[in-house]
Simulated scan of single mutants.
Amino acid sequence: MNIVFSLDQIQEVAEQIIASNPNKIILFNGEMGVGKTTLIKQLCKSLGITDATSSPTFSLVNEYQIPSGKKVYHFDFYRIKQETEALDMGVDDYLYSGNWCFIEWSEKIESLIPEEHSTINIKLLSDGKRELELV
């Protein structure tokens, strides 16, 4: 799936992503400031989360409850130096829980990512729009 969108269309984009039935583990790739966290916040809303959502840059993971009883885990591995830091926090338990896992800076834990995952690549275009590719 490829989508070009402006930030005021992000709700529709999030709904299209969920409707496309991606794997529950989604890696988010893109430069700093391209809108990865903003998109993840909207995906959480589209899944029914009403609590405030934020970037887990310092905590590494934020956990949110979906009305169905399932959870969403939002990871931000920007600050880690080694994969062992992710292992020490129990990342395997999260990744194999069957819950949604939205992962920013996944390249920092590349060998820990399960084979069954989806990837969202986001690029900022010269006109301020974003180009999203879901694979």
Rank of each mutant, 00 (worst) to 15 (best):
F75A: 07
N99M: 13
K36E: 02
Q11R: 08
E15M: 06
Y73L: 08
W105Y: 12
N29L: 13
G69Q: 05
I10S: 15
F58I: 04
W100K: 04
Q11E: 07
T37Y: 08
I18N: 04
E12W: 15
V34W: 10
P22H: 15
G48Q: 02
I26T: 10
Y94T: 06
D76L: 10
Y78K: 08
K70P: 00
F77T: 15
D8W: 13
D93A: 10
S59I: 07
G35P: 06
L39Q: 01
I66K: 08
L39P: 05
Y94P: 03
I49S: 03
F75E: 02
E104Y: 09
I17F: 00
H74L: 10
K108T: 12
V61N: 00
S20E: 11
V13G: 08
I17V: 14
T53S: 02
L87C: 09
L27N: 04
R79D: 01
L60W: 00
S55G: 06
L95I: 08
F58M: 11
Q11Y: 05
A14T: 15
E104K: 13
W100N: 05
Q65I: 11
I40K: 02
D93N: 12
K71M: 10
G33I: 08
W100H: 04
Q11P: 01
A14Y: 15
T37L: 10
G90M: 12
K41V: 03
T57R: 04
N29V: 14
T53R: 01
V13A: 05
G69L: 06
M89R: 03
